[in-house]
């Protein structure tokens, strides 16, 4: 069992934060991770920036563009993270698009992840079918969980196939949207959360997209195992820097 699988078994609702590696400054990656752990975040998604992030809205796009301008690369990210397990215990996930990983070499990438202590990958544009036939064995060899997304339009039949091919959690996209494009949840969305909860899937669900404050976080965790915040966190870090992390996390949890 990897760290992420263990954390998902804890008897508590989970808060996860996404941030773009190399942003706002090239070498902020480690400090941001440490600060998030210190403030009680349960696991972290480290965004590997890509030039053409199709599933992302303007906030994450802009952070990716800037991170690449700052000089972020796959090799540099691994270098920044090489000693991360000396100081950080919570699960770490790398989230990115498939092309940079394909160019790095999928096996080499997975091997490096295991050496560093990465627990899972989220690759939104790696299709389920290609994962199953070409890469699943490699992910398992290096003890990496692969996280799939589902949306309100995903059929029950497909959700079940995704569930059976998942080994950590299912990333439940809250609506048909790119990241950071909505405020608050509608009744239609909470119906969808409840519909999925009723399926009694093998893997817990974590809700992402559209969670930006205490209220949306509460709605999410009353319908799922936890929630992921991305764009709202990036907006804070650009405005207040690393110093703003603590009060932001407190405002979400409302301690």
């Amino acid at each position: 069992m990897n760290r992420l699988q263990k954390t998902l078994q804890l008897d508590k609702k989970l808060l996860s934060i996404y941030f773009t590696a190399g942003y706002p400054n090239l070498n902020d990656t480690v400090s941001i991770i440490q600060e998030l752990e210190k403030n009680g975040v349960d696991f972290i998604e480290i965004g590997l920036p890509f030039s053409d992030p199709l599933a992302d809205g303007p906030t994450i796009q802009a952070s990716s563009t800037q991170a690449l301008k700052n000089g972020m690369t796959t090799a540099l990210l691994f270098d920044q993270l090489k000693d991360i397990r000396k100081t950080v215990q919570i699960p770490l996930i790398i989230m990115g698009y498939f092309n940079p990983i394909l160019q790095y070499g999928v096996e080499k990438f997975c091997k490096r992840c295991q050496e560093i202590g990465i627990d899972a990958l989220i690759l939104p544009d790696l299709p389920l079918e290609e994962y199953k036939t070409l890469y699943k064995a490699t992910f398992e060899k290096y003890n990496l969980s692969n996280i799939f997304l589902i949306t309100p339009q995903t059929s029950t039949e497909r959700i079940k196939v995704i569930d059976s091919n998942s080994s950590a959690f299912i990333y439940m996209v809250s609506s048909a949207s790119t990241t950071g494009s909505q405020n608050g949840f509608s009744g239609k969305q909470t119906d969808y959360f409840k519909r999925i909860a009723k399926l009694k899937l093998k893997n817990p669900q974590i809700i992402g997209f559209g969670i930006s404050n205490h209220e949306t976080f509460q709605t999410a965790i009353s319908n799922a195992k936890g929630a992921i915040i991305g764009s709202a966190f990036i907006k804070i870090i650009i405005k207040e820097g690393i110093a703003g992390i603590s009060s932001f996390i407190k405002s979400i949890r409302n301690f």
Binding site: P124, D125, P127, E130, R158, T178
Partner: peptide, 11 residues
């Protein structure tokens, strides 16, 4: 070829 798309586009 193939269809390397995010799940949101799958349906």
């Amino acid at each position: 070829g193939g269809a390397y798309i995010p799940e949101m586009l799958y349906p």
